[in-house]
């Protein structure tokens, strides 16, 4: 019934343009903003804010012991933590602004932030 015989040459061009526009929107809008700093919290208070540009290992004290936060190649992760289930360690590298790793037992968290703060959930 419907066939592509109805598509004229210019229509193909329009289709291509539309597909490119859609792909471009997907690539640009579905990528979190670039992160440039890590906000480290301990016990709910900001422990330190460090730039991601310098590779380093930061030790953060908590109620259970020391959590170690590694910053490497504009990424951050919790390298070691005394928490029993190690969820925050297993979360791995954080890359984009808005990503967070939280070690609840030791009350330590790392959040990446960029120039624009992204939201992690929206309701309306």
């Amino acid at each position: 019934m419907l066939s592509i015989a109805h598509i004229k040459p210019g229509d193909w061009l329009t289709l291509l343009l539309g597909a490119l526009l859609t792909a471009f929107l997907g690539v640009t809008l579905w990528q979190g903003g670039a992160a440039d700093k890590a906000i480290i919290r301990s016990g709910g208070k900001i422990f330190s804010v460090v730039p991601l540009s310098r590779n380093q290992l930061i030790s953060v004290p908590g109620p259970l012991g020391i959590s170690q936060i590694a910053i490497h190649n504009l990424q951050a992760r919790i390298a070691s933590d005394p928490s029993p289930r190690q969820y925050c360690v297993r979360q791995g590298w954080l890359k984009q602004a808005g990503e967070v790793a939280v070690c609840l037992p030791n009350q330590v968290s790392v959040e990446l932030s960029g120039k624009q703060k992204n939201y992690d959930s929206l309701n309306y």
Binding site: H6, I7, K8, P9, G10, D11, L13, T14, L15, G18
Partner: peptide, 13 residues
């Protein structure tokens, strides 16, 4: 747009 090359599909998109 020249209708020789562009049809309803273009307008629709």
């Amino acid at each position: 747009l020249p209708s020789r090359w562009f049809g309803p599909v273009t307008h629709s998109i």
